[in-house]
Amino acid sequence: MTLVIVGIGLLPFASSRDLSLGNRSSLLALITTILLPCIFYSINRMLGITLLTPEGMQLRTLVSRRRIPWDDITKIEVERRSGQGGPWQVVRVHVARGRPVVLPGAMQSLRGQDEAAFQRSVNMIHSCWQQATAQHRSAAT
């Protein structure tokens, strides 16, 4: 989708044989407007962290903080994604109310990174969720 938007934005420049200073500035502004948010989003996701606490998950990125109590989580899954940088995996948490949340810092490139370490992290998240929800169920009965 990003490439389609860039392509549409570059159409006026494709037919122009000379790139005057004004056209170059417009081209630079267009590329900056599209590329910088994409780069920031990726860095924000990679540098973010997910802390597991007895109460739930604390998601921290460069610009946001969020808490998700264990009881609000309905499903935890690994989602495979792909893009120009190649395939990667992320951990998605489904919550009772709202859209699924991709956990910051919990991602793995499928280009030679340690898949066993990623899987250990996923298993730890599942284990903490199951223990916390089991304790809440046993306390309620």
Rank of each mutant, 00 (worst) to 15 (best):
C128F: 13
V95T: 13
D114C: 07
W88I: 04
V91I: 15
R81H: 14
L30V: 04
Q119V: 13
R66Q: 10
R67D: 03
W129E: 01
R45I: 02
R66A: 05
M57D: 00
A117V: 09
P100S: 04
T61I: 03
R67H: 04
Q89C: 10
S26L: 07
P104D: 05
V63I: 10
Q113D: 15
A96D: 13
L103D: 00
L59P: 00
F118S: 02
C38M: 15
D18F: 06
T50P: 01
G86N: 07
I39R: 10
D72L: 01
P54L: 01
K75Y: 10
V90K: 04
P37I: 12
Q89F: 10
P104N: 06
I73R: 02
P37R: 11
P104I: 02
H126K: 12
R97A: 13
P100N: 08
L27A: 09
L52T: 13
S16C: 03
E77D: 12
R97D: 14
M46W: 15
H94R: 05
D72P: 00
T33N: 06
R17S: 06
A29W: 09
K75A: 06
I39M: 12
Q89I: 08
A106I: 11
V95Q: 07
G105L: 02
R17D: 09
D71H: 04
M57F: 11
A117Q: 13
R97C: 07
W129C: 02
I68T: 01
Q58P: 00
L28R: 10
K75V: 08
L30E: 03
